[in-house]
Design a protein around this nucleic acid. Structure first.
Lengths: 111, 111
DNA sequence: ATTATTAATCGTAATATTGCAATAAATTAG
DNA sequence: CTAATTTATTGCAATATTACGATTAATAAT
């Protein structure tokens, strides 16, 4: 035990959970916000902004890359990261679809 | 080490990460979808639907309750759960605000 | 009061995540 | 080639999460 029993759930449920997990850390949110703010590739500088050690940030970047949200391209000695707009849109869509459902059926007469 | 360094991040960043974490498990998503689908209080029956053991589901319900997304009221020997529409709206808003930012500035000329 | 039913809690094992020092890998500059 | 610079990887410790058997708590029914 200790590991999530993914086989019990649908592909969609696992996917949405996985997407939520990708942004379920303040450092990763901070990284994404930084990329949004600058609206461009960010080469280095992320380590200076956040207060975490370089290997820690590298690991968070790796996770975001694995999730597909960001892309990294080697640019000399440094690596430039930016948000993948397509995957970002997909995230937006998934979360919105998930949360929109309740909105339509407003039940006040419950519990 | 091992624990998230929340003090390095803003209240908003920590809050959004915390919200993402609340739905970052397929069982919790499945529970919420069930509550949405039935659009009412669900008394028991959640254990039968998902393939997880009763204590496990109880624990997931506890986390969702702690996050404020669901409410539980005792109804005889069973407990009835339902989504809190207000908190749900807040979640919807937060995630939407987070993801909408990139949409507006479409950079194709990157990386 | 006894029993049945349902959910919560406790305790524990397995696995995952977070964080960083040390090191390695890759590229550039001289 | 030899530094210098920057990022990735390795290895490990600390903490968190997931899962469930066993038990407890709470209420209902008899």
């Amino acid at each position: 035990m200790g590991a999530t029993k993914t086989d019990l759930f649908t592909k969609e449920q696992n996917e949405l959970a996985s997407m939520a997990k990708a942004i379920a850390h303040p450092a990763r949110i901070a990284i994404l916000q930084q990329l949004m703010k600058l609206n461009a590739c960010v080469c280095g500088s992320l380590v200076d902004e956040l207060g975490l050690a370089q290997p820690t940030i590298s690991q968070h970047l790796k996770e975001l890359k694995l999730a597909g949200i960001i892309q990294g391209t080697v640019e000399g000695t440094s690596v430039c990261y930016c948000i993948d707009p397509k995957v970002w849109q997909k995230y937006r869509q998934f979360f919105n679809d998930f949360f929109v459902a309740v909105n339509e059926l407003a039940r006040e007469d419950c519990c």
